[in-house]
Amino acid sequence: GDVSTPPSLFPAVRPRPVPMSSTVVQGNKIIDKINERLKRGEQFFSFEYFPPKTEQGVKNLDKRMTSMAARGPVWMDMTWGAGGRTSDLTLTLCNKIQNEKKVDALMHLTCTNMEQKKIDDALTECKKTGVRNILALRGDPPHGEERWTATEGGFSCARDLIKYIRKKTGSHFCISCAGYPEGHPNVRKVITDSKWDPQTNTPKYWAVRKTKDGKYEGVSPKDWETEQNYLKSKIDEGAEFIVTQLFYDLDIFYAWVKDCRARGIN
């Protein structure tokens, strides 16, 4: 019921602090754990959750996280919530993951409705609770708004947020960023180029898929170049690994990885 029920029907969920020991044990950096498993040729997995909208939802999630933690994920990540509305709860749940479930937490952190001081407060809380992994994102538009705009005194994109975190905290955090093998939704468009041949994909479009109505959509070479250059800039500013958007075509994913490698994204 939490997913489909409008949040306005419920009062705000008040996060409850997790009891902490006097000595905080800092978590592991996820990039180190990934590299260790890659060297050993091991497969690995993680779980992602979003903050529930009700008190009962929080209790249900806590039980599920306990059960799923026993499966041995390398990490568990918690989203920041659409429009930054559940930021306090995200911090509380990451605390639970790190210190109760004994799994390294990856906390999503977005630019939406977040001026610099709020970012600073979130990073301070992470240090207090031993959370060392941040997925830095621009974020979705605030609840009820269609377009995303930067918050005054905040950040305009994920790259700027990554740059700020790295400058402020040095190497303390393992920072990750988002990647889009099929292109960001904002740049995926129906291909209307009359010279384009769908059989040979000439001239080349990226991440081409046939839609239900028989049309083809993809990413133009110009937009793809812009997207990939931006991804590289996030890595250059301090992101250590990429979490991809959901995709369904492995060939598209492999082509994206090959293109990333060619740009020095390793």
Results as ranks from 00 to 15, higher is better:
residue 79 T to Q: 10
residue 175 I to C: 04
residue 208 V to P: 01
residue 266 N to W: 05
residue 153 G to T: 03
residue 45 F to Q: 09
residue 200 T to R: 06
residue 265 I to V: 13
residue 154 G to P: 08
residue 183 G to H: 13
residue 96 K to R: 15
residue 82 A to V: 14
residue 132 R to Y: 11
residue 65 M to V: 14
residue 69 A to K: 04
residue 43 Q to H: 07
residue 44 F to N: 00
residue 139 G to S: 06
residue 209 R to E: 13
residue 146 E to Y: 00
residue 90 T to E: 12
residue 156 S to M: 02
residue 170 G to P: 09
residue 117 K to Y: 07
residue 227 E to K: 03
residue 25 V to W: 06
residue 159 R to H: 11
residue 70 A to S: 12
residue 51 P to Y: 00
residue 109 L to S: 05
residue 249 D to T: 03
residue 193 D to T: 14
residue 79 T to M: 04
residue 153 G to Y: 10
residue 86 T to W: 11
residue 171 S to F: 07
residue 9 L to N: 05
residue 53 K to A: 08
residue 234 K to Q: 01
residue 100 E to H: 13
residue 85 R to F: 13
residue 112 T to L: 01
residue 188 R to I: 01
residue 95 N to W: 14
residue 167 K to L: 03
residue 156 S to T: 15
residue 62 D to T: 05
residue 145 E to H: 06
residue 244 T to N: 05
residue 214 G to M: 08
residue 70 A to H: 07
residue 52 P to N: 02
residue 122 A to C: 14
residue 63 K to C: 10
residue 35 N to H: 05
residue 231 L to R: 07
residue 265 I to D: 09
residue 39 K to L: 06
residue 263 R to C: 12
residue 106 L to F: 11
residue 119 I to D: 01
residue 78 M to Y: 01
residue 192 T to Y: 00
residue 32 D to L: 04
residue 19 P to R: 00
residue 219 V to I: 08
residue 104 D to F: 05
residue 230 Y to F: 08
residue 216 Y to A: 08
residue 190 V to Y: 12
residue 95 N to H: 13
residue 148 W to M: 04
residue 146 E to S: 04
residue 172 H to L: 15
residue 15 P to Q: 06
residue 208 V to T: 07
residue 262 A to C: 03
residue 152 E to N: 13
residue 123 L to V: 12
residue 103 V to S: 09
residue 216 Y to P: 11
residue 18 V to Q: 12
residue 43 Q to E: 11
residue 83 G to Q: 02
residue 248 Y to E: 01
residue 157 C to R: 13
residue 157 C to Q: 13
residue 17 P to M: 06
residue 134 I to M: 06
residue 162 I to V: 09
residue 96 K to Y: 15
residue 54 T to S: 08
residue 144 G to F: 01
residue 105 A to P: 11
residue 235 I to S: 00
residue 41 G to K: 00
residue 85 R to K: 12
residue 190 V to H: 04
residue 245 Q to C: 02
residue 21 S to R: 13
residue 73 P to C: 10
residue 243 V to P: 08
residue 266 N to F: 15
residue 99 N to F: 05
residue 60 N to D: 15
residue 169 T to Y: 08
residue 199 Q to N: 12
residue 192 T to A: 07
residue 70 A to L: 14
residue 236 D to G: 02
residue 68 M to V: 10
residue 46 S to P: 04
residue 49 Y to L: 12
residue 137 L to Y: 08
residue 19 P to F: 12
residue 166 R to F: 14
residue 157 C to G: 14
residue 90 T to C: 14
residue 113 N to I: 08
residue 250 L to M: 03
residue 146 E to N: 09
residue 161 L to H: 12
residue 97 I to A: 11
residue 176 S to V: 05
residue 196 W to Q: 07
residue 107 M to C: 05
residue 45 F to R: 03
residue 193 D to S: 15
residue 130 G to N: 04
residue 33 K to D: 15
residue 257 V to L: 09
residue 193 D to W: 03
residue 186 N to T: 15
residue 71 R to Q: 05
residue 120 D to M: 00
residue 161 L to F: 03
residue 1 G to C: 09
residue 2 D to P: 09
residue 255 A to S: 13
residue 3 V to L: 14
residue 172 H to Q: 12
residue 61 L to P: 01
residue 232 K to N: 02
residue 216 Y to T: 09
residue 57 G to P: 01
residue 4 S to K: 14
residue 154 G to F: 03
residue 1 G to I: 01
residue 258 K to P: 01
